[in-house]
Structure formats: C-alpha cells, structure tokens
C-alpha cells in the first residue's frame, strides 16, 4: 500500500506562486510518488491533464496517480486503445485514463464517448491533452512535465477553476507540509 506520508526530502522546496506549483523530480520513482499523492486526493469529475514530450514521464506519473487512487489493475499506456477504464474494489468507483497521442483534433475525441467520460463518473487522466485543447473542460488541473536531464524532470502544476486550485493546495500540503 502506498504511504502518503513518505518523505521527498531530497527534492527542492516548491516554487510558490499563486495557483501554481513548480517542482523537480529526481527519479522515475519520485515522479511516481508525486503521482500517487495526487491520486489519493482525486474525486469523481476531476480532470488531470498531463502534458509533455514523449519520454517526459506522463505514463509514469499517471501510473502513480492510479496506485494512489487505488486501481485494481496497474495503469499502463493507453496509447493503443485510447482509453482505459479502471476500477477500484473498495467502492466500485471508476477512473478513466485517456491518451490523445494518436489524435489530430478535438473532434476525434468525441468518437470514444468523451462527453460521457467527463460526466462525472470518475476522475479522468488525459495524456497529450494539447492535441484536443478545444474539447477540454474549463475546470481542470494541468501538469506539464519537462525533461531537464536523463532522470530529472520539472513538474509544473497549474489549475483552472476552484477545484483544481484546491487540488494543488492539498497536494502541496501533503507533499511538502506547507
């Protein structure tokens, strides 16, 4: 079971800015732990967009979110199927994991029942959200992952909407105690 109170003391203190959080991950494992902390906070209707280049760590971060949230089966890349619907045993809730890597426009996402997925049936993780910008809901948490060095990544959290700001604040408190 994931321990939410685990220490990330090796990481730098976050850069504090209104409604934003800017942190560094030093390893794949740490990126996963950050994801897991966020995962513990998610509720139905939350939309988490994971942006960044191939190899930036989006699926790693998503897998962390899944483990923190409590998925029955570990999250793997949904590139092939475009959407993976996960469940957790505790309360039969669902979590949706989308990948827009292969899509070229916002219109194409409708074909997989995007509106239905957004209808608050569970939290939604979206990789490559920049491919479908126009279709994204206004209320969302945007996490940008950037490659700094082979193992170091910069994660920038930016929220739009009250719920996303709440998520950032709770995540910051859970991770850094501030």
């Amino acid at each position: 079971m994931y321990n939410a109170k685990g220490s990330d003391s090796e990481s730098d203190l976050p850069i504090l800015k209104e409604g934003q959080l800017d942190i560094i991950s030093h390893s794949v494992e740490q990126t996963q732990r950050f994801g897991a902390r966020l995962g513990t906070l998610l509720q139905p209707g939350d939309v988490i967009c994971l942006a960044g280049d191939m190899g930036a760590g989006k699926t790693v971060f998503a897998a962390g979110i899944g483990s923190g949230w409590g998925v029955e089966l570990p999250l793997t890349s949904p590139t092939f199927n475009l959407v993976h619907e996960h469940t957790r045993r505790a309360d039969a809730q669902r979590l949706f994991h989308l990948d827009c890597y292969r899509l070229n426009s916002a219109a194409e996402i409708e074909a997989i029942g995007f509106e239905d997925i957004l209808n608050g049936r569970g939290p939604v993780i979206i990789e490559w959200p920049e491919r479908i910008t126009e279709a994204l809901p206004r209320q969302r948490l945007w996490v940008e992952l950037r490659v700094l060095e082979p193992t170091r990544r910069n994660l920038v959290f930016a929220g739009s909407g009250k719920r996303a700001e709440e998520l950032i604040a709770s995540f910051r408190e859970l991770t850094f105690g501030i």
Partner: peptide, 17 residues
C-alpha cells in the same frame, strides 16, 4: 506483463520517431 508500453506500441513509437 508490461508495466507501461506494450511491445508493439514501443515498435510503433520508435518507428515514428
């Protein structure tokens, strides 16, 4: 099983690259 990308997906992504 795979923890992240499927084997064929890795072939496709590297092929595209």
């Amino acid at each position: 099983g795979t923890l992240d990308d499927a084997a064929g997906e890795a072939f496709d992504k590297v092929g595209r690259l």
